[in-house]
Computed example of a mutant assay.
Amino acid sequence: MPQLNPNPWFSIMIMTWLTFSLIIQPKTLSFTPTNTPTNKTPSITKNHPWVWPWS
């Protein structure tokens, strides 16, 4: 079964992982978000019971 032979695919996976973690990830993490998170005060909603017309 050729799927059990990790010889070519393991090196490709390691190189891809290293490329992502060392080159691509720091570049994407350096971007600043456009919308900074703000603290929002929770609004208290009052529940009104439903009046059933047939009761």
Rank of each mutant, 00 (worst) to 15 (best):
L18C: 00
P49Q: 05
F20D: 00
H48R: 03
F10P: 01
T28W: 05
T19C: 02
N5Y: 14
M15H: 00
I14E: 10
P42V: 10
K40I: 13
S11V: 01
M15G: 06
W54K: 11
W50S: 11
L22H: 00
N5I: 09
N35I: 15
M1G: 11
K27R: 12
P2M: 10
W17F: 06
W50L: 15
T32W: 04
L4C: 15
I44R: 06
M1L: 12
P53N: 06
P6L: 12
T38N: 06
T19S: 01
T28V: 15
I24L: 08
S30V: 01
T19K: 02
P26H: 03
T36V: 08
K46V: 15
I14H: 04
W50M: 09
T45V: 14
P53W: 03
F31N: 10
T16V: 06
T19G: 04
S30T: 09
I24V: 12
W17M: 05
L22Y: 11
N39R: 13
V51E: 14
T45A: 14
L22I: 11
T16D: 01
P53Y: 02
P33D: 07
F31V: 10
S21V: 13
W50A: 11
K27V: 12
S21Y: 13
I12N: 04
L4N: 15
P49E: 05
M13V: 03
T38S: 12
T28A: 01
I44N: 10
F20G: 04
Q3A: 14
M15I: 01
I44A: 09
K27E: 05
F31A: 10
P2K: 05
H48Q: 06
K40P: 08
V51A: 13
N39I: 14
W54Q: 12
I23D: 06
